[in-house]
Design a protein around this nucleic acid. Structure first.
Lengths: 332, 332
DNA sequence: TTGAAAGCGATACCAT
DNA sequence: ATGGTATCGCTTTCAA
């Protein structure tokens, strides 16, 4: 690889001068600038980002850690961060936690080794204390989809409780009073909060959820199918179900239909997340929109601003999901 | 950040010694090793990957560039590369080309700036010459989903032509003779090859495809819907359609059904790629499996081996798609 | 406007 | 088994 030294020699100037033109530094004679630029071009010089990071103690990388890449929800999250990276001519460092606390931690540590200062993490397995410790070491670290009051101004999160309430209010507005819930294991707070909001609003309306109508399973299509089977097996009556996420909702719908129940005719279903899939399932899924990409962009910018010191306007920390009415719900 | 110097001072040894214990170097007294390790731990020392890269001229990063992150197909590709990165304790550098030649080029250039030597790229917009030039500069660069004879041993690709033939043979085996095709614009070679293979086999069987039954659109669900409408509008008769990819196939199916055609009863549909979506569409999509994740892992390992010099066994360059029979095809 | 030189944090060769 | 030190490629004072 050709280095700054090679360029300097070829251009018969000092490396300091070359450095200046590379960085559009001030005070460089127009003629020398041209000459150096020319040589750089013809020698195919590319500055070494590592050396630069070493010298400046500043890194042009933006890190993101997500549970897994193949989940479209997280892909959208990563996409938001990548967008911001590209806008700032930074390189994206991406790691997955693979649903393991240890791997998640390693992923973040690897980022720290790279001296990446701008980091957005969606942790699924790390506990609050560990996260707090990490946040303490890395001032630029920002949490997404998690709300730790101790570092509130570094968390970008969705109000899951409110999401549950919105779903409940929607069902109520359509005269549904006998509802079931499909929740999820293996998650930190989200399922609990969504369920809690839902139950709370239903209870307040005088139609509390029957505990027998709350089943939970893994948060996937398969899990949704199994949950629906559990629900059906109980022989209880219900006119609608609130599912933890779109995948489970769609899995459940397929089981309902396979068993002769029309959706939404016999059973209405509301999902959560509004992933792409929900737009192409049949019937199209009514769900709560989780603006994950926007949140991710915002989190990335927040993280960035914490390092640059730029005062960023309009930092939004808390998001509220919005109801997207499609075809999986009808009035009772 | 605490540096190797700080640790050396605190441990009252030379930085050379600290370096040795960090790298599990040979010839370090057990007692000093312990002492240094202790200090490192208590000071929270993390080696600086940038400095290390500078000194060793070796980078612990693995780069991947894909067109976009939100396409599940590319997410799987990235996932394969990420897996290999994690297995080798390397950090993944991910960039997207955003379907623009310029952005694709920038993405690769950014990787070069980082002195990333191990790169897997799926280029959608860069022409052969540019790619060849890049490959020439970066010995570790490996192309995926593209076949350039000039650098054959650095290309991991799928035989699209054969894929088209397989689809045709399958239709023929079920007595379908009157077939339509939904192809795609905006792609480099894939659509052409898939279509060519399909047409070729059909023609050889004595049932050439009617050119009026070949429509193309953008390779998305939306594009599939539009293509299906075009097809329907022609008023031609056909009992099956071979779609460029799963997204288009699923979009087409929804239009067919909305217009009263049963799939597969009235129209059979075969997709391509076997993305997750195809398993959850209704009817479940019959499609050609594109082992993209496996190919990506393989490509990443190939790239890695080109740098380490390790002789890697079983490098597979060319993959053949396999037919996955699900529910969107029936005999005529 | 330009150059010389001191780091940045680590590695690795050469001594001891 | 340890230490000293040149070096990696670049940025950034400080002088000239």
């Amino acid at each position: 690889m050709v280095t700054i030294k090679d360029v300097a020699k070829a251009a018969q100037v000092s490396i300091a001068t070359v450095s200046r033109v590379v960085n559009n530094g001030p005070k460089v004679g127009e003629s020398t600038r041209r000459k150096v630029l020319g040589i750089m071009e013809q020698m195919g010089y590319t500055p070494n980002a590592n050396a630069r990071a070493l010298a400046t103690k500043k890194n042009s990388t933006l890190g993101v850690v997500i549970p897994e890449l193949t989940d479209p929800f997280f892909a959208s999250l990563a996409n938001g961060v990548e967008l911001v990276a590209r806008q700032n001519d930074m390189q994206l460092l991406l790691s997955t936690g693979q649903l393991s606390a240890q791997t998640e931690l390693q992923a973040i540590q690897l980022l720290i080794e790279q001296r990446c200062e701008t980091i957005v993490v969606h942790s699924k397995k790390l506990d609050d204390a560990t996260l707090l410790g990490l946040a303490n070491k890395v001032p630029g670290l920002v949490l997404i989809d998690r709300h730790l009051p101790a570092i509130e101004h570094r968390c970008v999160w969705l109000d899951n409780l409110e999401g549950g309430k919105i779903a409940a209010r929607y069902f109520l507005s359509l005269q549904h009073t006998n509802l079931a819930c499909i929740s999820s294991h293996y998650e930190i707070d989200d399922p609990r909060l969504r369920l809690q909001g839902f139950k709370q609003t239903m209870a307040e309306s005088g139609h509390p959820i029957d505990d027998r109508l709350i089943v939970s399973n893994e948060p996937s299509l398969k899990g949704g199918e199994l949950a629906a089977q559990q629900l059906l097996a109980k022989g209880q009556d219900f006119s609608g179900v609130f599912a933890y996420n779109d995948a489970m909702a769609i899995g459940a719908i397929s089981v309902f239909e396979d068993n002769g129940f029309k959706v939404p005719g016999d059973i209405s279903v509301v999902g959560f997340d509004d992933v792409l899939l929900s737009r192409y399932s049949r019937p199209k899924l009514t769900t709560l929109h989780y603006p994950i990409q926007e949140m991710a962009e915002n989190a990335a910018r927040l993280s960035l601003s914490r390092n640059t010191g730029d005062n960023i306007k309009d930092v939004k920390y808390k998001y509220i999901p919005t109801l997207v009415k499609r075809e999986s719900v009808s009035s009772v």
